[in-house]
């Protein structure tokens, strides 16, 4: 019986694999060290993203101010600590930390210099200009930037833009702006009759467009995750 069930079980696959983990060694005073860490995160925002981090506590005595909070401080910065090494002898203060596996051994690789994010260059945002009317059933998809239409967008047409959408004729179809996650994108129409308005995933159906703005020049923007339709007037 036992033999039978053993035979039907699938064989186990056990493999060894090595991953590169980053080792962070905090120094006292911890408040200064965290300040340096923040500066580093600012320079290369994606550096720690999704990477396993081992916290090396060799440089600490175990009595530093803020050590109890350190784990939470790092967690709040999206730094994923998978383990701790170099535990100080008096480590009572770490009792409140999650029970991480204590690592020993390991082989040092060179010191890693975090890359520095390239500064945002002053290049123009790409835009897509269309002079023809957009017919029912047509879809314009431009995730790179703004879409400008110097004509009308028919009912049953759809405009998708990474940035803002400008329609200098009548907007009768669907306008979906900010699809690349831009909540500051807007929709402008000389004649607002849209079937659907959406910015960065928040949307408004046609019937919610204020009556007084229907067929009038209007702009659409996102304020606190709510779509607002406003008259297209000169603002102070």
């Amino acid at each position: 019986m036992v033999n039978n069930s053993l035979r039907s079980l699938p064989p186990l696959q056990i493999r060894g694999r090595s991953f590169l983990a980053l080792v962070l060694s905090p120094k006292a005073p911890l408040s200064n060290w965290l300040f340096s860490l923040d500066a580093q995160i600012k320079r290369s925002s994606q550096f720690f993203f999704g990477k396993p981090v081992i916290l090396n506590l060799e440089l600490l005595t175990g009595h530093e101010d803020g050590l109890e909070q350190l784990y939470n401080d790092l967690f709040a910065r999206n730094i994923q600590i998978i383990s701790i090494e170099g535990l100080p002898a008096t480590s009572s203060i770490l009792k409140s930390w999650p029970k991480n596996f204590i690592l020993t051994g390991g082989r040092d690789i060179d010191n890693i210099d975090p890359p520095i994010d390239s500064l945002p260059k002053n290049h123009p945002i790409p835009c897509y200009i269309i002079d023809e009317p957009i017919r029912s059933g047509q879809t314009i998809f431009f995730p790179e930037g703004d879409v400008i239409i110097t004509n009308s967008v028919a009912s049953g047409a759809e405009i998708n833009a990474g940035g803002s959408i400008h329609v200098y004729g009548a907007l009768r179809g669907r306008a979906i702006a900010g699809i690349s996650g831009q909540s500051k994108a807007r929709i402008f129409a000389n004649q607002m009759e849209a079937e659907l308005l959406a910015i960065n995933g928040y949307y408004m159906a046609s019937e919610e467009i204020p009556e007084r703005l229907y067929t009038k020049p209007a702009q659409v923007l996102l304020k606190e995750n709510v779509i607002h339709v406003m008259p297209l007037l000169k603002t102070k």
Binding site: E132, R135, S136, G137, Q138, A154, S155, G156, A157
Partner: peptide, 13 residues
Amino acid sequence: VRDSDRIIGILDS
């Protein structure tokens, strides 16, 4: 009218 608009789009494409 909407269907004609669709057809014009197809004529153009």
